[in-house]
Write a protein that binds this DNA or RNA. Sequence first.
DNA 1: AATTGAAACTTTAAGCTTGAAATAAATATT
DNA 2: AATATTTATTTCAAGCTTAAAGTTTCAATT
Lengths: 157, 157
Amino acid sequence: MSIELEAAPQSAAKARLRLWLRMLRSTRLIESELRERLRLEFQATLPRFDVMAALYRQRDGMIMSDLSRFLMVSNGNVTGIIDRLVSDGLVSRQKREGDRRTSFVRLTSAGISAFEEMARSHEAWVSALLADFSGDEAAQLAGQLKNFESEWEARHE
Amino acid sequence: MSIELEAAPQSAAKARLRLWLRMLRSTRLIESELRERLRLEFQATLPRFDVMAALYRQRDGMIMSDLSRFLMVSNGNVTGIIDRLVSDGLVSRQKREGDRRTSFVRLTSAGISAFEEMARSHEAWVSALLADFSGDEAAQLAGQLKNFESEWEARHE
DNA sequence: AATTGAAACTTTAAGCTTGAAATAAATATT
DNA sequence: AATATTTATTTCAAGCTTAAAGTTTCAATT
């Protein structure tokens, strides 16, 4: 084994720590910019956008637990956000026949068009905010992160 | 110009969007794991850890605005977190002579040792959670993100 | 049929977060 | 000196977030 392969295991820990701090910082930078634009342009919030995006992907509806699993947030959290979306007429909650514990939530037609409008801007914003990354570079980085996520999930069963 | 350099500008936007979603997802994955461990091992929260880390870097103290600028969170947010840290005896608030608007906050000695204990675990956790990245890979990624942050700051004056 | 256990969801309490408004002190202008 | 502006911070209301506890319903055992 070469010296390079063995060298400085302790500084690998430091490198990972630095990577983590960078990830956190970059993500927050972008997140807070998106949050502000969503608020100014659409009187919306990021959590609401995320929920609506999930429901848009799954157009015929989702049950609450799938939603909270997909978004990686707690059940109670989703309850509150959906409550507000429902009272704004963007999402509907329907009890299910088969299982009376669950309820199906889905975008209303108002919700669909509201989301589509936001999503167009959102994609343009993200592309502009990440313009430092070329398409290839972005694809490569996304691949590395995807691998990371896969390994993570494998590790947690 | 070659076709490669010009090709598919629209799919570059998609690639950046995918990158952003990966960044968000990976960061949340790590963040929630760290949050849980801080809670279980140290009855602490991530925001408290972040504030203490900032104060540890700047051992002789910081004023509130510097703290909120550094952490990229709102003023009011920092006020609340500091309030709780002070009432736990981990941080002290001292009025300043020169400028009576500002107050200096700094870790108490209890705060310093509490942080050092957490920081040791934290670094080990992060290194283990990011073990999929070799030291070199981590360093390279951190570099890309650092560039991104620099460009960002240059763009925003 | 009655009980037990698991699953889906809501509620609650505490803390985090934001933007906006309020307060107070310092600095600059008139 | 009086007024206006800027800066530093806190307070507030609304929404987000979590973990834990509670409710209701379903599924499996006894």
